[in-house]
C-alpha cells in the first residue's frame, strides 16, 4: 500500500515537470507580459528595467531553471501584476471554488442517486421515463445558459412577479465564517443562499450523469443471481436495494464523482464568472489574459497535485467498495 502511494506520488512529480515545461513554453511563446503591464507610452528604458527586474530578459531555459530552483524552495514567484506571491493569491481563492464544487457534487449525488436507482428498479413507469428524459436535458443544456436562466427566474422574475417570493442572491459568496483562516460560506444562512444557484447550475450536468449511470448499473446488477439469492434468503426489499444493489452501484459512481469533482474545481470558470463567485477559475482566466505566468504555472501545479490526490482517494475508495480490487498489483 505504501509502495503504491509512493509510486503514485512519483508519477505526479513527473506529470508536474512535464506540465510546467509545457505551460512555461506556451506562455513564453504567446507574448511579452511586459507589454500588458506597462502603459504603452512608457519609454524603452523603462520596459527594459521591468524586464530585468522580472528576469524576462534571460533566455527561456534560464528563466525556467530559475523558476524550478525557486519552486523547489517553495517559492512560485510573485504575480507580475498584483505583486503578491502567486501561491498566496491562489490559496486565498481556492476554498471558494472547493466549496462550490463540493456543494454541487453533494447536490448531484443527493438527487441523482435516488432518482437513478428508482429508474433502474422500475424502468417502465411513467416516473422513470420522465426522469430519463429530464436527464438528457440535464447534460445537454449549456452551463452558462442554465446559470443565466436560474438568475432570471429566481433572482429577477419570480421575486418581481410574485409578492413575497424570496429573492435568491445571484452574486458573490455572501457572509462567510473564518475557520482556521479559511473563509467558508456554507456555515452561514446567507452564505448557503448565495451558494444555492451556482451549485445547482453546476450540479445539473453531474446529477444527470449520475442518474444515467446509476440506472444503467442498477439494471445490470438487478438480474444478477446474487440479488435473486438475497431474495431467496428472505431479506427485505430495503436491505436488498440498500445494501446488495447499492454497494455495487457505488463502484462506478465513485469513479465518475471523482472525475467530475476534479473537473468542476479546475474548470468552473464559466459558472464562477456568471455568479461573480470569487473562485480560482476567474483568477486563472484573468491571469491567462494578462500573461501573468507565475499565477498560471502555480495554479496548474496545484491542479495537477489536486487531481493526483483525487485519483488516489478514488482508488483507495475503490478498494473499500470492491474487495476484489488490490491496489498493490496495479501499476497505473
Amino acid at each position: 500500500m505504501i509502495v503504491y502511494i509512493i509510486r503514485r506520488l512519483m508519477q505526479a512529480a513527473l506529470v508536474m515537470v512535464v506540465m510546467s515545461v509545457l505551460v512555461f513554453a506556451g506562455i513564453y511563446l504567446i507574448g511579452d507580459p511586459v507589454l500588458m503591464m506597462i502603459s504603452p507610452d512608457a519609454s524603452e528604458l523603462e520596459r527594459e528595467a521591468v524586464r530585468k527586474a522580472l528576469h524576462l530578459d534571460l533566455p527561456m531555459w534560464q528563466q525556467y531553471l530559475l523558476f524550478v530552483n525557486d519552486a523547489l524552495h517553495g517559492n512560485f514567484g510573485k504575480s507580475f501584476l498584483a505583486g503578491q506571491p502567486a501561491m498566496g493569491l491562489i490559496f486565498e481563492r481556492f476554498p471558494a471554488t472547493l466549496e462550490l464544487a463540493f456543494a454541487s457534487l453533494v447536490l448531484s449525488l443527493a438527487i441523482g442517486l435516488p432518482l437513478g436507482v428508482y429508474a433502474g428498479l422500475r424502468p417502465h413507469t411513467a416516473g422513470s421515463k420522465t426522469i430519463m428524459t429530464g436527464s438528457i436535458l440535464g447534460f445537454s443544456l449549456p452551463n452558462f445558459w442554465v446559470g443565466l436562466m436560474l438568475i432570471m427566474v429566481f433572482a429577477v422574475l419570480l421575486p418581481d412577479l410574485v409578492p413575497g417570493w424570496p429573492r435568491l442572491p445571484a452574486s458573490g459568496r455572501g457572509a462567510t465564517v473564518d475557520v482556521l483562516g479559511v473563509k467558508l460560506s456554507f456555515l452561514t444562512g446567507d452564505g448557503l443562499l448565495h451558494l444555492l444557484l451556482p451549485a445547482v447550475t453546476l450540479s445539473l450536468y453531474k446529477g444527470a450523469l449520475i442518474v444515467r449511470l446509476a440506472r444503467a448499473t442498477a439494471r445490470e446488477v438487478l438480474p444478477m443471481d446474487y440479488v435473486k439469492f438475497a431474495r431467496a434468503k428472505g431479506l427485505s426489499e430495503r436491505r436488498i436495494v440498500g445494501v446488495h444493489v447499492l454497494k455495487n452501484i457505488m463502484i462506478p459512481i465513485a469513479t465518475v464523482s471523482g472525475l467530475e469533482f476534479g473537473q468542476t474545481v479546475a474548470f468552473a470558470v464559466v459558472t464562477e464568472t456568471i455568479f461573480s463567485w470569487p473562485g480560482v477559475g476567474k483568477l486563472l482566466i484573468d491571469s491567462i489574459l494578462l500573461l501573468d505566468r507565475p499565477v498560471v504555472v502555480a495554479y496548474l501545479v496545484i491542479i495537477v497535485f489536486f487531481f493526483v490526490a483525487l485519483n488516489l482517494v478514488v482508488d483507495l475508495l475503490y478498494s473499500v467498495l470492491d474487495p476484489r480490487v488490490r491496489l498493490e498489483s496495479r501499476a497505473t
Partner: peptide, 21 residues
C-alpha cells in the same frame, strides 16, 4: 417463509454470493 422454512441453493456458486460483501 423464504430463507427460513423454504431455502434455495442456486446453480452457479460463482454468482450467488455478492462479490462486494
Amino acid at each position: 417463509i423464504r430463507g427460513s422454512e423454504i431455502a434455495m441453493i442456486f446453480q452457479d456458486p460463482m454468482m450467488t454470493l455478492n462479490p462486494v460483501l
